[in-house]
């Protein structure tokens, strides 16, 4: 898969060739810190864990991942470079996957840079590092979910702002679909499969389950499936041309 690794490297390179990477990482770390310490009450809780960080992670990703995702294809379309990519002797799905992996690795790097939080809790007490690691993994997978949604929606337009807003809205629906306020709207008249389906596709439910320390492969598999489905949709959108 040399083609794949070439595309991944080019995508990663593009973040660091421009201020995008530095601005994104700085803002992500700053917001992560603020949320963890103030509304998250990291110290006041008196517990050696990262719950106060992970609780806000889905919301941080909900807003910041679309900012990475919006340029994935919309920018290539606007500048015309999508023609260079799609006329390479590569399978379109390799190009889609390569660009996604490049962006996903980049977000993974930003997430990994929150490691001082992890060092801090280990310094202050004895956290369950297994749970923390699993939750980091879950968080990265969730980011992949948002990113795959953004990949598909960004392929639909040449306007990055449109791509950002669409991704934010669809991502939000995926986050809150398990919430009581959403469920309540359907209770009483909606069929059971719809209610079950809505709670089953909730990012939050699956991420929380991972965070409780229950390593159920179905939760990880769920995010991988979400990624696969949206990336396949991206390929279809691009092939539609």
């Amino acid at each position: 898969m040399t083609g794949l690794s070439v595309i991944v490297r080019r995508e990663l390179y593009s973040y660091f060739a421009t201020p995008v990477a530095y601005v994104f990482v700085a803002i992500f770390l700053m917001l992560a810190g603020i949320f963890t310490f103030y509304p998250g009450q990291f110290f006041e809780r008196g517990q050696a864990d990262l719950v106060s960080f992970f609780n806000y992670l889905p919301w941080l990703f909900l807003v910041l991942v679309p900012a990475v995702a919006m340029r994935l294809w919309a920018e290539e379309r606007r500048s015309g470079t999508v023609e260079l990519l799609m006329t390479l002797p590569l399978n379109p799905s390799v190009v889609v996957l390569g660009k996604f992996l490049g962006a996903w690795l980049f977000i993974g790097l930003a997430l990994a840079l929150t490691f001082p939080l992890w060092i801090t809790v280990n310094f202050l007490g004895q956290p369950d590092n297994g749970v923390i690691l699993a939750t980091y993994l879950g968080g990265w997978l969730m980011a992949g979910g948002f990113l795959a949604i953004g990949s598909c929606l960004s392929a639909l337009t040449r306007n990055q702002v449109v791509a950002f807003i669409l991704t934010l809205v669809v991502g939000f629906l995926f986050v809150v679909s398990g919430f009581p306020m959403v469920q309540d709207a359907f209770v009483g008249w909606g069929p059971v499969w719809l209610l079950d389906g809505l709670s089953a596709i909730s990012f939050l439910a699956h991420f929380d389950a991972i965070g409780r320390g229950v390593i159920d492969w179905r939760n990880l598999l769920y995010f991988l499936l979400v990624i696969a489905v949206w990336l396949l949709a991206t390929v279809q959108v691009l092939k539609r041309d």
Partner: peptide, 16 residues
């Protein structure tokens, strides 16, 4: 596609 060298309209390139 492997046989073709292609200059698309407007000669697009990654500016960065």
């Amino acid at each position: 596609r492997a046989c073709i060298g292609y200059l698309p309209e407007g000669a697009p390139a990654w500016a960065d």
